[in-house]
Design a protein around this nucleic acid. Structure first.
Lengths: 141, 141
DNA sequence: TCTATACTTGACCATTTTAGTCAGGTATGT
DNA sequence: ACATACCTGACTAAAATGGTCAAGTATAGA
């Protein structure tokens, strides 16, 4: 399972982006400053987001990034999937050969982890960027 | 968040233990052999399980470990809590000082991670060792 | 056309975590 | 007394994490 700060940063950055891209593309520099995330690291993250069609890039002066879909069409699953590679927990593949299969206790955890994954995904499936956006602006002081 | 193979091993070992401790205590050596988990590693894990009152130890020849409660009274939360320290995701404490608080986007992820945690815990709260035990024996071939 | 801005790519790296191993115990049933 | 099995703590190789650094390329605007 992977839910690291890369995923967290991605979410933070995209929420930021969603809030400011109404008029112009938003540069990573701005996001970096506002969110306190290293510019270089953001570039890595946005490279993945772009590959996964979550954002689009506009080069040159006044360039930056834009969401490629509406905030309510971007689910958190998409984001995590993009930067975390997988929200996978089961690393039973080695065990499949030996202990996991045929053996007495037959990798009890295999099914368990699968269920967990489904459970987590259903959580992220329901949440969109827009949800976070609302949640966030409500909380502003 | 932490859901590593230490947690997985703990679950596997305890299911194994639950199935074999009817008559005698079960030695780690047996579990090690049956589950293919290093004995030394098991000892580390069981040390934690013991501290958390999930198992009891019987020393000496013919000694081993026994569950300290009935399988249906041992929830997976207990197990993960015991070996994984915490099923915590939020590491926002540094950010609380700077970016997270007062700032424009105010750590959107903070609430999100909290919710996720609750979500995951509720999953593990429902599952007991007994559930896995059933699930497992059903699947035996 | 020049230049500043901003995206793009890929290599590199320090630190931390993970998943153990190793070595030496201590307790106890037979 | 001795074999079995728990017990403890130090140690470590390898992987993951969370970045940095360097060297570009594309484009808008002066």
């Amino acid at each position: 399972m992977k839910l690291t700060s890369k995923g967290r940063y991605a979410v933070m950055a995209l929420v930021d982006l969603a809030r400011f891209d109404n008029i112009n593309p938003v540069s990573l520099r701005d996001i970096s400053l506002r969110q306190g995330i290293s510019l270089d690291y953001l570039e890595q993250i946005f490279s993945k987001l772009k590959k996964n069609k979550i954002v689009e890039s506009i080069r040159g002066t006044q360039g930056g990034y834009v969401l490629s879909r509406k905030p309510n069409e971007i689910k958190l699953t998409n984001i995590f999937h993009a930067v975390d590679e997988k929200v996978k927990t089961v690393q039973c593949k080695k065990e499949l050969k030996k202990g996991c299969n045929g053996r007495a206790t037959k990798c009890v955890t295999h099914n368990l982890w699968d269920e967990l994954e489904t459970h987590i995904n259903s959580f992220f499936e329901k949440k969109s960027l827009e949800d976070l956006l609302k949640n966030n602006t409500e909380q502003r002081t």
